[in-house]
Design a protein around this nucleic acid. Structure first.
Lengths: 224, 224
DNA sequence: TCTACTTCTTTAGGTTTAGTTTAGATTTTC
DNA sequence: GAAAATCTAAACTAAACCTAAAGAAGTAGA
């Protein structure tokens, strides 16, 4: 489960990330408005935990963007403000739930589960690139209409590349996206080579050609 | 990653440069207000670490200039002063983050990463000069719409020239820009000849004409 | 809960590519 | 024409990347 935490209070960021991380989720943190916007543009999260009162911009604007771009993330709003207007406005804009500070992490967690059960987020999106088709709903990857079976990391990797085709993705960016913010602790990204290698082996000769090494910089999925 | 460290405390300069250098970044140091201004005018850094309380001028003025000239650098302010006003003023002026002395280098590092991830600096910029096109997103260089493949140093070199076209760049400046402050240790800049030469060979006959030797001074990329 | 199985991470050696050094050739300036 | 600066090719060194395999961790089924 990929979760984006858009919250500018450091302590709260960390608690949420650690708590949800224990459940096997991968949390990325966006520390301000722009960071949140950027990350949302990069990837379709399943859950976004969104502080309405970010210092550098309003969470409501982020919500508007999400709706406008038809992102399917489940959104849970955090607010210090208990006013009914805010709450209604948030829900009007398509948020799935609303929680006011302070709150227990366990409650946040159960709300996330509830939102997920509702299943709003998991539309029926399939991503197609030449002979590669990814059904994000069933997490199935087809090449020339034949299923290839990928592990979770391989799947995440492929999806990250294919949704950012043409862009050079550094090992740091990859690490952060696939492993969340724990990756600070690691001082070598060697394991990424392994996953790249595994992924390439599972792709067909043709398809693996798209995934290019950019020596000294990272990798990119060429758009062709 | 090109980082400018605008800080007048020598010891701190060095620690930051060494620490960040280990991650493969290239750090240039500006020891005072004028030096910072000059270096900023020369090149679009990706990150600028800016001490607000420089002896010879205010970091806030540097920030104003950056904003005025629409530079895309991520700016992290360092200050000994923990006042909220300063913080807010800095952020108002477009700084991306704020850190108060004393701080752990690891924290600076993680803030840099956070700022970078926000990706303000690396939108979808393509730089065009006559028949040369550089897509900084995919790190691809085209000449007459045909891709030419450059190594990292060659790419950095070309980018440095093309963003400073018309200006004579000395070997010292080039060395500092491409290799950071480790270049103090080297007493000859001969290796630059090699890279210039390699770059010229990879450019077309036409394009390599832009890159002129200025005997006794350095090189310049003529604007035409 | 135990076992078998899958996936993930770590390690280490090998391969490739890039970067640096060297030294002799060439050019420029005075 | 001599000294300094620059160019160039090739050998050398270092860094980045790949790959296989083994150990660790996680997962599912009995």
């Amino acid at each position: 489960m990929k979760i984006l935490i858009a919250e500018d209070e450091q302590a709260l960021q960390q608690s949420i990330a650690i708590y949800l991380g224990r459940d096997g989720n991968i949390c990325e943190i966006a520390s301000d408005y722009d960071d949140a916007m950027y990350k949302i543009s990069l990837y379709d999260y399943e859950i976004i935990i969104l502080d309405i009162n970010l210092i550098t911009g309003s969470g409501l604007d982020i919500l508007r963007l999400l709706k406008k771009e038809k992102k399917k993330a489940g959104v849970i709003i955090i607010s210090a403000n208990n006013s009914l207007e805010d709450k209604l406005e948030g829900l009007d804009l398509g948020a799935d739930d609303y929680i006011t500070k302070p709150f227990h992490l366990a409650e946040l967690n159960s709300r996330i589960k509830a939102v997920l059960r509702r299943g709003k987020y998991g539309g029926d999106e399939t991503i197609v690139f030449n002979e590669i088709k990814i059904d994000t709903n069933s997490k199935t990857v087809y090449i020339n209409s034949k299923i290839i079976s990928l592990t979770r990391k391989e799947y995440d990797l492929l999806l990250f590349f294919i949704t950012n085709k043409g862009r050079v993705l550094s090992k740091e960016m990859i690490a952060e996206h696939l492993w969340g913010d724990h990756s600070d602790l690691v001082d070598s990204f060697d394991f990424i080579y392994v996953h790249i290698n595994n992924l390439r082996k599972k792709l067909t000769r043709e398809a693996s050609r798209y995934l290019r090494t950019v020596y000294g910089s990272g990798y990119k999925f060429i758009e062709e």
